[in-house]
Design a protein around this nucleic acid. Structure first.
Lengths: 198, 198
DNA sequence: TGATCGTACTTTACTATGTAAAGGCGGTGG
DNA sequence: CCACCGCCTTTACATAGTAAAGTACGATCA
């Protein structure tokens, strides 16, 4: 039996793991399944992630939720809008892995380059120091929260709800418009509110 | 052996489960541990949640993430601020259960009374129909996203990061102010941005 | 060339977990 | 007194993470 070096790498393992999560959900990401996907025994992964599955999940969230850097071109508002849209898209690419966001923080070192760019943009907007920090926080929170709502809505398993009746007049009035609204439209409209007015 | 009726109820089971999650984390919520906490065998839970752990988790998120109803008193802005603060506090009470937010939506029927109240407030603010929906979405997203950030920051295990250096001048300048900012202060400041200007 | 050794994997084995299936026990209505 | 039902227990099994020890391959050095 010629034993071939499988040539595992941390990156390759993380990508295979994300592929499983995307296709079958976090629940079904197991060391054995991951090994199978890589053509290797489960325990082989421990050579690259000695702390086991926990460390693997750390690496996954770092890959999935690392905020991108804002573009260098454009005025501050355009750069922030582009950043927000890019981060939203990136997060949605691996929606199945996002529960990890509540479990483990993205390492600061990974977030810093992105944050620096956002702070620069808000500085250009002419805000004072406190306002810069608050605006950056509001924007990041909005993007993350939007993604929660979009993921929830896109997921299956929402039991059909009886249409809002007389006890919920506002809801009843607005419901058709609400179901017609795209997630993209909602996201952009929310950005208008969250970004400082010029 | 006198076998005593344990008198389990769905509510009691959910509360015991949340108690375990609060104290030991989602990972350590197991059917056996839950049984022990209730003075019962693991399988007893299945009588009340026939679909098993999955159904239990559904019930937990419904309990933890059901948005409160805005107060009836006060002007629209005050009601929305109070609502946002209350929801934030409620979510943080069971931060350990929040990863479930990405897995399962809060049933619409549970969210409707709260949403109705928020829509009423935004209507009072004088927005047109589309703007009402967008503002409600932005507010909800902001609260949820803020909670992600607050939970992440409050959790242990953030590896100590070298202070930002010359490559991150804005970060370096703003860092002291950032670490001094309270989460409450940040949250409130973000609300100012997200709520429509009168 | 052959001995030595570290790296990258495999084997084996153990404990924990979710849950199907079937069993038992006490109370209730006939 | 008996049959039934609601609530819980017992038993059993497939699957999970992972510790510990084993094995093969290539590089390094004598």
């Amino acid at each position: 039996m010629t034993r071939v070096q499988a040539g595992l790498t941390r990156e390759g393992i993380v990508e295979a793991a994300l592929h499983i999560v995307d296709g079958q959900g976090l629940r079904r990401l197991t060391m054995r399944r991951l090994g199978d996907a890589l053509g290797v025994e489960a325990m082989a992964v421990y050579h690259h992630f000695p702390r086991g599955k926990d460390q693997l999940l750390d690496a996954m969230i770092e890959h999935v939720a690392a905020p991108p850097r804002p573009p260098a071109e454009g005025d501050w508002e355009q750069r922030l809008r582009t950043w927000a849209q890019a981060y939203r898209v990136k997060l949605l690419e691996h929606a199945g892995a996002l529960p990890l966001l509540f479990t483990r923080p993205v390492p600061e070192a990974v977030a810093f380059p992105s944050l620096e760019g956002r702070l620069a943009a808000f500085t250009e907007a002419g805000l004072d120091e406190e306002a810069i920090l608050d605006a950056a926080h509001a924007l990041a929170a909005y993007v993350l929260g939007h993604v929660i709502l979009e993921v929830q809505a896109e997921a299956p398993g929402q039991p059909p709800t009886p249409p809002p009746d007389g006890r919920h007049p506002h809801l009843a009035r607005l419901r058709p418009r609400e179901t017609a609204r795209t997630w993209d439209g909602r996201f952009t409209a929310g950005l208008d509110a969250v970004l400082p007015t010029r």
